[in-house]
């Protein structure tokens, strides 16, 4: 398994990278962690003529809380996320997810930005970011624009990032109050893509009323899906088992999974139903803890 020939550059600045992308247009691909791109090139499902390796560009890898946001640089490796103290203590949803993304070696290379920018509904971070209502910074020679995650995923492998642009940072509003989050996916074996995955961020007030809820679903829809109707059931209500059941039911109805070796449509809907219940409960437990 060997890729077709291509040309390659590893610019040291974003400006150089933008210029290369503008020059090569559709023929160029950005190389970050490379663990989605290189396998596709080895199988010759993808044969880009030019690779722009952004790994030498400084300033794209960081995890910090600043101005009310958790900021994650696009080049941040999954391992760095997993080992970050701030993530471990306040955002276990990421450690839940990263443990289940591929395997340790792949996580040493794979980046958070790449996981999102690939636009694959089977990847795990899209659902997490949907639950967290992330904002995504997309930069080009024209400057930087910020796109809410809800407007980021367009279609099958299509995102808001245009060929001349680079995803540079993901910002997550720091949740306040009694808040908890969690992620889980069913997989056929460790490291597999999700049969179905669910990300939940929930905040409740002292009376147990839900003041924030985000639910994202992995690999049960052509594009990463936010379970809007499920969120609406819970928002502003005192969270009960009955309401959680209803939210789970809506999520299973609103997704649109396709049949593959992991299961048929009905099975996946059924698993979404189970998982949404479980992950809301887990997020709630964490909120109470």
């Amino acid at each position: 398994m060997i890729p077709a020939p291509f040309d390659y550059a590893a610019p040291a600045t974003l400006a150089e990278a933008f210029s290369l992308l503008e020059q090569h247009g559709d023929e160029a691909k950005i190389l970050a962690g490379g663990h989605s791109l290189i396998p596709m090139m080895k199988l010759r499902f993808a044969s880009p003529e030019f690779l722009v390796d952004i790994n030498n560009i400084p300033g794209l890898s960081h995890i910090k809380e600043e101005n009310g946001y958790l900021k994650i640089g696009a080049l941040t490796r999954e391992t760095e996320l997993d080992e970050s103290e701030v993530i471990r203590s306040k955002y276990p949803i990421f450690t839940d997810a990263s443990k289940l993304i591929a395997d340790p070696q792949v996580r040493n290379m794979g980046t958070v930005g790449g996981n999102i920018a690939h636009g694959d509904a089977a990847n795990d971070h899209p659902a997490v970011m949907l639950a967290l209502r992330a904002e995504v910074d997309i930069s080009s020679s024209e400057g930087t624009r910020s796109v809410p995650i809800d407007e980021f995923f367009y279609g099958f492998y299509m995102t808001a990032v245009q060929p001349h642009e680079i995803l540079t940072e993901i910002r997550i509003p720091i949740p306040n109050g009694k808040t908890g989050n969690a992620y889980h996916k069913l997989e056929r074996k460790v490291g597999d893509y999700a049969t179905a995955g669910v990300a939940v961020q929930i905040t409740i007030d002292d009376a147990g009323v839900c003041t924030y809820i985000g639910i994202g679903l992995t690999n049960v829809n052509p594009v990463p899906l936010r379970a809007v109707r499920s969120e609406e059931v819970l928002l502003g209500q005192k969270v009960t088992d009955e309401l959680i059941k209803e939210a789970a039911k809506y999520a299973s109805e609103d997704c649109n999974p396709s049949e593959d070796l992991r299961g048929d449509e009905a099975y996946k809907r059924s698993m979404v139903n189970v998982l949404v219940k479980r992950i809301i409960h887990k997020a709630l437990e964490r909120a109470h803890a």
């Binding site: 398994m1 390659y8 190389l31 490379g34 663990h35 290189i38 396998p39 080895k42 199988l43 391992t79 591929a102 395997d103 340790p104 070696q105 792949v106 040493n108 290379m109 490291g191």
Partner: peptide, 24 residues
Amino acid sequence: CDTSSCGACTVLLDGKSIKSCTVL
């Protein structure tokens, strides 16, 4: 393997374990 599934090609790159079949 061809798909970074098996890990037989694991080496350390700047001290981090990676799968050298999926790195240029």
